[in-house]
Design a protein around this nucleic acid. Sequence first.
DNA 1: TCATATGTTGAATTTTGATTCATATCATGA
DNA 2: TCATGATATGAATCAAAATTCAACATATGA
Lengths: 214, 214
Amino acid sequence: MKNGKPSRKERDYLRHRQEILQTALELFSQRGFHNVSMHEIATASEFAVGSLYKFFSNKEDLYRALMIDTSKVFHSSLMAALTTSGNELEKIRACVEARIKVFMENIDYVRLYLAETRGASFNIKAGLDSDIKIRYNVFLQKLANVFESGIRKKVFKKFDPYLLAVALDGISNAFLFEHFNNPDKHPFDASLILDIFFQQIYEKGEMEKCNLVK
Amino acid sequence: MKNGKPSRKERDYLRHRQEILQTALELFSQRGFHNVSMHEIATASEFAVGSLYKFFSNKEDLYRALMIDTSKVFHSSLMAALTTSGNELEKIRACVEARIKVFMENIDYVRLYLAETRGASFNIKAGLDSDIKIRYNVFLQKLANVFESGIRKKVFKKFDPYLLAVALDGISNAFLFEHFNNPDKHPFDASLILDIFFQQIYEKGEMEKCNLVK
DNA sequence: TCATATGTTGAATTTTGATTCATATCATGA
DNA sequence: TCATGATATGAATCAAAATTCAACATATGA
């Protein structure tokens, strides 16, 4: 590398590294960190075991690189959607759509991502907390800000904006899982999510009857 | 055992088994299946390694027993709530409340449960699919039936009832996680969940302006 | 009290899989 | 073409953990 122009060797190195990561991603997302051996990754990526250790100092390091790399793609994609021009609803819609898009394009990664952000992260001794989870919380907070702004403008009702963000995120994830389990029956669609989230579920008039309303 | 009355030995056996499961649950939920050794479980439960194999044929079997046993408690608790007397909203409220209660009482189990039902089940080669997940789907379907009944009575709007169930489930899980991560800031409360789920989030009048409504 | 059955133990064995490193292969430039 | 350094290989090593089993303890009841 001479100021900015990577040499062929360097490009090769990076490409090889990328190939390994991609293969590992597929295997991990299929069977989980502990049920995939370095030998398998080596065979599947057409390298020798020893070579893997030229790229990553150990299995955990490989996994970490994988997760962090991809989480950056996710994160910037979602954040970009939230900075889109438009009113609050348009931002939120863009965000839901971006999420669908990026999830669909990285389906292998999603199971691992959700396991790390939502589930209990048992794969790595420590460390993804201080990266993926933080990034995830930044996103949630930014989404909350959009809700808050909508509330200030009296477009949304006065709910805790952070909880709204959590709720929307929860619905999205739930639909995503549903889609995984049954892709044909449940297309994964932004309007579906937004409709259920934003429209009142009660029929007009019925809501006043119940004790839910303050 | 002579028709129904378990002998002392049998009660001992069952109690010991239960103690092992309880210990294992704590350890697994803390550090995950693969990061807990049989020796640790043995030490913590005050048995010898060998003894564990008198109760369970191997580690995976122990884990499976653990998950299935507890999932039954969960399941029957949620199902009972849905069979409560009352109208649709009352059933749904009862269900959300039951979920909160049973989750709080089995916090150790919850992380594992969610990992298995929502995340990818990487711990067990195969088998929990055909048990926990099925039970979970039965619950979802039953919840969907309640929504459907509400829709027939024109109390709820015409959404796909199954998707409503998925959405409510998703919100509940999301709030649960939030509560885990920040117990003081986010009390885990049924009304909160139901409010966000059932009340329109848009201010009156604002909804008509947007392109969301059909 | 003793013989038998039943339950418990944990050191020894086996398995699994991560990691290493001496050797082979390849690319480069003299 | 050959020497040299860089890179790739995978059999051998090592460590961790699952599983086994011969020996030990304890309870039962004749």
